[in-house]
């Protein structure tokens, strides 16, 4: 017989895990979209070196597993931090994971942003220039606001995938929601119940978010 009653006393610990998951998700999406936008602009640049570098970055990170990036950054980020600041203060797994997610997701976000920018008619760009705007003003005031409006559903979809992928931080020992459920389940000797519960929570949140995105998509389509 399954016994789900032991989940109730474990809820505070699981909530802590969910807080870490959501915090990591929010910060990764924010950083990933910013870096991804810069990469998309670089990729679309008329300077061959800049667009080549951006292309290499995107293709590289899209060709390696996220788990590898997480493990690798866990080792490398503290070294770089020490090298940059000269301080030996420990960086911590959370920061390493955050850097890994931002850099990895930026590659995916940049492709979405690039498609969004390219979907804005050239005439809009010309109109901005004709009014005397500089490149950065045309992008900031005219192109990106329209592009992001079109891209929002895709960016949210990618964020939902990332929400699930944050569970990979178990590899470096971070107690996110899934890892908290797993360790609690092991401690009380009910691993199946806790994992089933965790699965249900992921399912409800992801499905709910997906439905929301579909609704948004309909509204944006008008």
């Amino acid at each position: 017989m399954m016994d789900f009653s032991q989940i109730v006393p474990a809820l505070p610990a699981l909530a802590d895990g969910m807080v870490l998951t959501l915090k990591l998700l929010a910060m990764s999406v924010a950083g990933g979209v910013v870096l991804g936008t810069l990469l998309a602009l670089a990729r679309l640049s008329s300077l061959p070196l800049l667009s080549g570098l951006a292309k290499f970055y995107v293709n590289y990170f899209r060709s390696i597993p996220l788990l590898l990036v997480i493990s690798w950054f866990y080792l490398v980020v503290p070294l770089i931090y020490t090298w940059l600041t000269g301080s030996f203060e420990p960086v911590g797994a959370f920061t390493s994971c955050l850097v890994a997610f931002v850099m990895f997701e930026a590659a995916y976000f940049s492709e979405i942003v690039r498609a969004g920018i390219q979907s804005i008619p050239k005439g809009q760009v010309n109109a901005g220039y004709a009014l005397g705007m500089r490149y950065d003003q045309v992008m900031r005031l005219i192109v990106l606001p329209q592009a992001f409006r079109k891209m929002t559903p895709l960016l949210l979809q990618q964020s939902i995938i990332l929400f699930q992928d944050t569970s990979l931080v178990y590899a470096v020992g971070l107690l996110d929601f899934l890892n908290a459920a797993r360790s609690k389940g092991d401690i009380v000797g009910l691993p199946h119940e806790f994992l089933i519960f965790a699965g249900a929570v992921y399912f409800v949140i992801s499905m709910g978010a997906t439905q929301l995105v579909k609704r948004l998509q309909k509204r944006f389509a008008v």
Binding site: P121, G123, Q124, N126, A127, A130, Q146, R149
Partner: peptide, 11 residues
């Protein structure tokens, strides 16, 4: 400058 397709900013 005035364009064929107006190019007002829709947002």
């Amino acid at each position: 400058m005035v364009f064929q397709h107006f190019e007002l900013f829709p947002h």
